[in-house]
Design a protein around this nucleic acid. Structure first.
Lengths: 125, 125
DNA sequence: CTTTCTCCACTACAGGTGTAGTAGAATATC
DNA sequence: GATATTCTACTACACCTGTAGTGGAGAAAG
């Protein structure tokens, strides 16, 4: 299951790519990666390790090993954001909110806009 | 200077403690750490490594090595939150906001409260 | 002064990560 | 069928991190 997923940047990039592709081979991932400078074997290694971690599963199809994400991008994000909140803000997610606004990353006025946006979105669903 | 500071949980815990103490020895940090189960030498090792990284500086005072943070807790938080935003949300901090609300970590109604709170805080300053 | 305590520097070691090469098997191409 | 391509598995290696032991120097205690 989900639990605490903690991925490095590189690993996240690869899982995300795989999720967008909805599964695929190392070659597929490599071809769709934002950073094209990696060696094929590097991607393959990372995929293997991610599988060992339980984030992916794989299946041999013909000559290819096809990986399937066992977790959604949302879950990963939730888990990683959650980890940061627990480390930096003692588990208080509002403190992160406050931090974002205080640090000027987000304009306070945007909060209201955002709220309305989300309210609308909720209605639609 | 600041730049990209990336600390592990453990490292963050130690820097944060040191910041609260406004500097101190390994022993001081150990005594004030939430997690008391670490060995003295473990804390000392981490402090040494953090100094090598430039996050701390140190000075020998008598028999003790006294460490001083070279960066504030706020800066570390900003840097680490920023890193996560860039990894997970392509640098869009509002996307993180939206994520927090969508994932139910924060009630949409709280956004307004928060906004008002922050507006007040701004007035006070 | 001798014994004990405490601190620091150095060393150690396992596990994770980034990165990639090599070997061998399977496939595609000529 | 021989050759080139391509894929996986295995191996490698350096660096980071968590964790801590050891040895020696200095300070405190008796």
């Amino acid at each position: 299951m989900s639990e605490k997923v903690k991925l490095s940047d590189q690993q996240y990039q690869i899982v995300e790519t795989l999720c967008h592709l909805q599964g695929g081979s190392a070659r597929d991932v490599l071809n769709n990666l934002p950073d094209q400078s990696l060696a094929y074997t590097t991607v393959a290694t990372i995929l293997t390790r991610l599988e060992k971690k339980g984030v992916l599963s794989s299946e041999t199809v013909g000559r290819e090993r096809v990986y399937t994400p066992e977790i959604s991008v949302s879950e990963i994000k939730r888990s990683m954001v959650g980890g940061l909140i627990s480390t930096l803000f003692k588990g208080d997610s509002k403190a992160l909110l406050a931090h974002l606004v205080r640090e000027g990353d987000v304009d306070p006025n945007e909060l209201e806009d955002l709220r309305q946006l989300l309210d609308k979105k909720e209605e639609q669903e």
